[in-house]
Design a protein around this nucleic acid. Structure first.
Length: 940
RNA sequence: GCCGGAGUGGCGGAAUUGGUAGACGCGCCAGACUUAGGAUCUGGUUGGGAAACUAGUGCAGGUUCGAGUCCUGUCUCCGGUACCA
């Protein structure tokens, strides 16, 4: 390899670290708070926030810099445009993966976290992000989690009043409520309810952390068991969490996701008397209008009434069924959901509208956790009930029809069982006094009817459950709670932070007993009191970190009032101005944080009801496209075995066959990794060149097992941070899912190299020197126009987060410079200023180089500190414009006309065009449409 | 099943209010400079056709002087979610 091959197209590896060090030395991106030196109160604020990373051992992946680069560009741009910009970074370092990694490596989680943070911080700094590192937060730092614990105590010390607002429980004390009554209303409370216990992880999990009956982390099975746990009363905020989404500038999809997760449904509760018993069973239904069609009732197997009502004859069957259901994990319960199961209890309820005796069954398709754990089954109008009734031969009674059936005798009565389930709205039939009513009206009337008789009432239910807030883990915030005489109480603020004890062995105990129980000295709080042993879930720290950034060093308060008011309250409409992160947090972090924020708002600690005004989700970056052999015989992709593991690949009857090197087995369908060259498109399919083997092109999520993970460090090493930043922004719209291409990075690298050569040239010794073509001369008209177009478009595109189009405009501008004989230094300085938010290192370097030769063309300081240039509208105006001539809507000719040409003049030019005349074929003109500056369409 | 999003060259993607479809980049082709080129520069690059021309934004219709963009129907893909009564 010759030396010229090794030499970089531009020396990014020298100047990138140089400028990173220079920014750091000058603390260039420090943002002063109100009251601090250097704070300029005349500027508006802009708070741009990234979802802070969980610092894993594997370091950044290319997904991180995507969102981070976007916010960095905006932050730098806003800064240059005269805003006080808050753009911080920190670490979400508590949590299960950290602890599991620590257990695996035998180190203390604090040590591994510190190391991982070190790694992440270094990687981010090498990408040149303009963070204010003075505001760095770390959720595992006692100086931080002191305030997480403090906020928990605020929740503990609050209840929700009749107006739905969080208020201190001292108000309840003043009303003379007793201890138990107060405890029952706290926003943080202790519950014995069944929880998601995960033996594999040795902890309980929130509903949100359980996916398909398995733990979200690790994929271990999760079972239900009753345990004493801390809960947060998020359900008290369900309606506000729905309503207050409306004012937010969030993607519609995310708002919908939250609404669905909270799952509001309106309906009614109906009380059913039971045959031969005095008590009643209450059901929840969204279709009270179908009450006449309730032909049986189903209650959850865990329902407390099951034992009481079951008859002697049915007891054995019921017990067997309950046992069967109980042994099933949630996973099995959903997997086996294909077939309905259930058992008759032997008991009967009385349908209040028609006094009919209806059988009460138990079945696991009714959940104890939702509504009342009991339903009235209306098989004619509910798919699930229909399925169940059909299987167990229960009566099906039609009470809703698509069209009203009125008038004449027998109009309402048709006891024939319907042929299929009709679950839509319609008109009541076979329903006594409801007959003929549309569903909505029928609902109203039956609800009123029930209410008058004390048999029921209108009711709104939510799917959202209270947030299970305790974990049996070591690596989390300890609860600032002590127990004495079976009762809990808060630690005083003066004892915060409550730091977890040092443990030699911090592994889960394997039982529901938390690992903190091993620290016997620590556990003993006093002669008679012991500490709470659970820790908080890792979501706790991320619920308020955006507030801490506003005043990260504050030792006396979680955030000073002044700083909170300025960064979160200031501006319109307040809160974080832009929050960028992945969709994976749509219902977890983003719901929890909103909940905490509302509590803090009600209590007067923050100045806005919502924390994040504008939310943008960056799309996932997928791995490079792989081609997979397609086997016509099987009619589908034959298997995904990467070619690197396969030998002896051959084509057998249009199927790729090979031998898996690891197992020695024959495999079909061999992946041809990333080789575009070997593939060609014929018709709508791809084939391996010169063969009949069909392949499928597909990108997959990056994963270690698939071996398609791109490491940003490698990209930085090969092409520089600026190339990586630019490429990630150029790939496509920020919010879109898009595959990585190694060659795409090269494209951006070449663009930057061309910018470099605008200013620099190689001398005979192969050294870079400032170009002789670079002169202090005005730019020609074409270049000037392109430059001002670029200033305008890039600014507008940044505001729209349309970074890909901003970059293409800068490429066009650069091409205009390249084509110009003389390189106008002043114009290039302006261009570098516009480029600097995207490629800050290169911009600084060239800015400094030009400044050294032409000091009067630059201002002192970093290019990052320069004001965003203003564009000159006059430079954009053209004297002449090209007009397109169409005949019957088809493009036939074009001509350049003066900008101020009148409609009549343009029409005349168009009609005189020989090409236009040719296509008019001598026919008379029916109509002429003139769009000034664009086109003329002649209709004949 | 339900909800959300998207279908444009070989690929990623552009295209204000309906107004020149394919900007910009990748890849590819040709040329220049070169001992060399996987460096750099210049030109070309939607398909068909020698060309004039013609077809063309998933598919089928519709509105309009004019449709990638609006309307109706339909198909496919991606993401989320699922006994929530």
């Amino acid at each position: 390899m010759s030396s010229s091959e090794q030499r970089k197209a531009f020396p990014f590896s020298e100047f990138e670290p140089k400028w990173q060090a220079a920014w750091e030395a000058k603390n260039a991106f420090h943002t002063p708070n109100p009251g601090e030196a250097g704070f300029d109160a005349s500027k508006p604020k802009f708070y741009v926030l990234d979802m802070f990373p969980y610092p894993s051992g594997t370091g950044l992946h290319v997904g991180h810099p995507e969102g981070y680069t976007a916010t960095d560009i905006i932050g730098r741009y806003k800064r240059m445009s005269g805003f006080n910009v808050l753009h911080p970074m920190g670490w979400d370092a508590f949590g299960l993966p950290a602890e599991q990694y620590a257990i695996k490596t035998g180190q203390h989680p604090r040590a591994t976290s510190e190391k991982n943070i070190e790694g992440f911080r270094g990687q981010l700094k090498r990408l040149g992000f303009a963070y204010d590192w003075d505001r760095e937060v770390n959720t595992t730092d006692p100086g931080y989690f002191k305030w997480t614990q403090w906020i928990f105590l605020k929740l503990y010390d609050s209840y929700v009043n009749d107006q739905g607002k969080a208020r201190p429980v001292s108000e309840l004390e003043a009303q003379g409520l007793g201890r138990d009554e107060i405890d029952a209303r706290r926003l943080a409370y202790v519950s014995e309810a069944p929880v998601n216990w995960c033996p594999g992880l040795g902890t309980v999990l929130a509903n949100e952390e359980v996916v398909d009956g398995k733990s979200e982390v690790g994929g271990f099975p999760v079972e239900r068991r009753p345990m004493r746990q801390w809960m947060l009363r998020i359900t008290a905020f369900a309606q506000r969490l729905i309503d207050e989404l409306d004012g937010l500038d969030w993607p519609e999809g995310i708002r919908l996701l939250q609404r669905n997760w909270i799952g509001r449904s309106e309906g009614a509760e109906v009380k059913f008397a039971m045959a031969g018993r005095d008590d009643t069973i209450t059901v929840f239904t969204t279709r009270p209008d179908t009450l006449f069609g309730a032909t049986y009732m189903v209650i959850a197997p865990e329902h407390p009434l099951v034992n009481e009502i079951t008859t002697a004859e049915q007891r054995e069957a019921v017990e067997t069924y309950k046992k069967q259901v109980g042994s099933k994990s949630d996973l099995e319960r959903t997997e086996l959901a294909k077939e309905k199961t259930g058992v008759f209890t032997g008991a009967f309820a009385i349908n209040p509208v028609n006094e009919q005796k209806i059988p009460i069954w138990i079945a696991d398709y009714v959940m104890m956790g939702y509504g009342t754990g009991a339903i009235m089954a209306v098989p004619a109008h509910d798919e699930r009930d229909w399925e169940f009734a059909t299987k167990f031969h229960l009566p099906i009674r039609e009470v809703v029809a698509a069209a009203p059936r009125l008038g004449g005798e027998g109009s309402a009565v048709c006891e024939m069982e319907p042929a299929e389930c009709f679950s839509e709205e319609g008109f009541a039939v076979n329903s006594g006094f409801l007959n003929g009513l549309a569903t909505a009206e029928a609902k109203k009337q039956i609800t009123a009817w029930l209410q008058e008789r004390g048999l029921g009432k209108g009711m709104t239910n939510y799917k959202l459950r209270d947030w299970l807030f305790s974990r049996q883990r070591y690596w989390g915030e300890p609860f600032p709670i002590v127990w004495e005489g079976g009762q809990h109480r808060a630690l005083p603020d003066s004892e915060l932070p409550l730091v977890p004890p040092d443990l030699e062995d911090f592994r889960p105990t394997g039982t529901p007993e938390p690992p903190l129980s091993k620290a016997t000295d620590w556990v003993r709080y006093s002669e008679t009191a012991t500490r709470e042993l659970n820790t908080m879930p890792h979501w706790a720290g991320s619920c308020w970190y955006y507030l801490r950034y506003c005043d990260a060093q504050n030792k006396d308060r979680f955030v000073s009032e002044e700083a909170e008011k300025y960064w979160m309250g200031g501006g319109k409409p307040g809160g974080v101005d832009l929050y960028v992160g992945g969709t994976e947090h749509a219902v977890l972090h983003l719901l929890y944080a909103r909940f905490w924020h509302k509590v803090l708002f009600d209590l007067g600690y923050v100045s806005t009801p919502e924390p994040f005004q504008r939310l943008v989700n960056q799309g996932l970056i997928l791995g490079e496209v792989d081609y997979y052999a397609f086997t016509p015989a099987l009619g589908s992709v034959a298997g995904f075995v990467s070619s690197e593991f396969v030998t002896d690949i051959e084509d057998q009857a249009h199927s790729l066959v090979g031998v898996d090197r690891r197992t020695g087995e024959k495999v079909l369908g061999v992946a041809l990794k990333g080789k575009d060259d070997d593939v060609e498109k014929k018709g709508e399919f791809f084939y391996i060149k010169d063969s009949a083997i069909r392949v499928e092109a597909k990108s997959f999520k990056m994963s270690k097992s698939r071996g398609n993970v791109v490491n940003p460090d490698d990209v930085v090493k090969g092409y520089g941070a600026d190339s990586l930043r630019l490429y990630e922004m150029f790939m496509g719209p920020l919010e879109q899912v898009k595959p990585w291409t190694a060659m795409g990075v090269v494209g951006q690298f070449r663009f930057l190299a061309r910018v470099w050569r605008l200013v620099m040239e190689e001398n005979d010794d192969g050294k870079w020197t400032i170009s002789t073509a670079l002169q202090d001369a005005p730019a020609n008209k074409k270049v000037t126009k392109e430059l001002h177009k670029t200033i305008k478009k890039v600014g507008e595109d940044i505001e729209k987060l349309s970074f890909n189009t901003a970059i293409s405009q800068m490429m066009e501008c650069n091409n205009a410079f390249t084509q110009s004989e003389v390189k106008p230094a002043g114009a290039i300085v302006t261009f570098l200023t516009v480029l600097s938010p995207f490629a800050p290192h290169l911009a600084e370097e060239l800015y400094a180089i030009i400044g050294a030769k032409f000091p009067h063309l630059v201002k002192p300081g970093f290019v990052a500190d320069q004001p965003w240039p203003a564009y000159d509208p006059a430079a954009l105006i053209e004297d002449e414009v090209e007009i397109v001539f169409q005949v019957n809507g088809k493009l036939r000719d074009r001509a350049t006309v003066p900008l101020n040409a009148t409609k009549e003049e343009i029409e005349k030019i168009a009609l005189s065009s020989p090409r236009v005349q040719e296509f008019m074929e001598g026919k008379p003109v029916k109509k002429i449409v003139v769009v000034p500056g664009k086109l003329v369409n002649i209709v004949v």
